[in-house]
Design a protein around this nucleic acid. Sequence first.
DNA 1: GCCAACGTTGGC
DNA 2: GCCAACGTTGGC
Length: 140
Amino acid sequence: MSYWLFKSEAEVWSWDQQVAKGDVGEEWDGVRNYQARNNMRAMKLGERGFFYHSRKETEIVGIVEICAEAHPDSKADDPRWECVDIKAVRPFTKPVTLAMCKEDPRLKDMILVNNSRLSVQPVTDEEWKIICELGDTDPS
DNA sequence: GCCAACGTTGGC
DNA sequence: GCCAACGTTGGC
């Protein structure tokens, strides 16, 4: 069971839009970066991830679940780009901001803290627990 | 809005 | 295969 983190600009695709899709979920399309794609290829049905709003809010706002494993991105004209489908599970009781992650010494090795450019990234079990705790949110 | 960091492209 | 030029992301 691995954990993940998905970044999106709220202006482009927000948590509210994700929630509105319900259990059907939505393709996480538009990724044009090999590292991010490879991370999606490694995702298994039922695994969980954080939903992060980049650029403006810079905070983790919810938990999502993989509801379809990697398949070609329907919006890409090149078949090498793949994506998974995700659905909203629950919002964070309190959003966990990037600043909070940077302040916590236990999260100093998080990719979110160290590589601001990677839009789909793995999260360790430890980081998952710590962030859920910071956000006062059920980690299960 | 600026710019640093990073990724990709393409000439050689 | 190297690396300069360029484009994009995202924090600030």
